[in-house]
Simulated assay, not measured.
Amino acid sequence: MPASSVTLPYVTVAKKRSVFLDAYRGFAVALMIVFHFCWDLRNFDFLQFSIHDPFWVYFRSLILTLFLTAVGWSGYLTHQSNRPNTLWGRDLKLFIAAAAISLTTYLAAPTQWIYFGILHFILLASLLTRPLLHWPILSALLGALILYTYHFTDWLMFPNAFDFITQHFITLPTRTLDIVFPFPWIGVVLIGPLLGYLGWQTVSIGESLTVKVLAFMGQYALPIYLLHQVVLFSAVATFKMVLE
């Protein structure tokens, strides 16, 4: 049979992951682990510091910036790959994970349980910013506008909003183990698609062991997030018990 008349079956080729994006997200995971490990050491009196010190405030902001730009970035890439169901599947995983975090912390620390932490915010921000994945430049401009407005004006400052909501609409603890307010962080998510549009995911960073470890952590960021504090907290608590 002539080669020109042979019809080959259609084979779906899996889209290759971006090592740079995975490592970028993995770097955020690594910093998060360091942050929480230090928090655990402080909780058990191995370290003394205030989480309101500028260093820790900026350190947390760096972690959030890396995570949230990666949210918008990966959302743009998924949208460009014409796999919209993947986004909804990710939303379902986030919803389940966020609910699990809320339930677990409510049972473990009912006076400080997490009702709107990083996972809750990522889920909400993903849904709100999804329409702008079509226009990454417009998305980034809007994100930059939100950041500028937040940092250089008081138009997005709502100092009494939290107290008003918790006192008049829903009963929530005044302290929580983790909370991420919509502003300015939704602006950071909106900047993420621009990184995908500029092709940062194609940047080559080699195949060193460090890169491989970070890429692995970035690829499995959600399960690592859900499990790492259980391991760290238990390890520090056990060490404290042994010393006593």
Rank of each mutant, 00 (worst) to 15 (best):
T166K: 10
V203S: 15
I101K: 06
D163T: 12
P193F: 00
F181D: 08
T149W: 00
L103R: 11
A100P: 09
F162E: 14
W88N: 14
I137H: 10
L94N: 07
D163V: 11
R90F: 02
H151K: 12
I170C: 09
I146C: 01
A144S: 07
Y220T: 03
N82A: 09
T202S: 11
I205Q: 14
F121I: 11
L107F: 09
I96S: 06
M217A: 13
F181I: 10
L107P: 02
N85E: 14
I191S: 03
A215Q: 02
E207Y: 05
S81I: 03
Q112A: 09
Y225W: 10
D154I: 01
L142Y: 07
I191L: 13
L147I: 03
N85R: 12
A108D: 08
T105Y: 06
L103I: 15
A140S: 15
A98R: 07
F152M: 09
A99R: 06
A100N: 08
I191E: 01
G199L: 05
L127A: 14
I137F: 11
Q167N: 14
A109S: 13
M157Q: 15
F158Q: 03
I146D: 00
A215Y: 02
A221C: 06
V213P: 00
V189I: 10
F121Y: 14
G206L: 14
L107A: 07
L190F: 07
W88E: 12
T174N: 12
T171P: 02
I146V: 15
S139Q: 07
V213K: 00
A99L: 11
A97R: 13
F162W: 15
T153Q: 00
E207T: 08
Y148V: 10
D154V: 01
L190H: 02
L195V: 05
W200H: 11
G143L: 03
L156W: 00
F152G: 04
S126G: 09
L133Y: 13
N85M: 13
G196A: 08
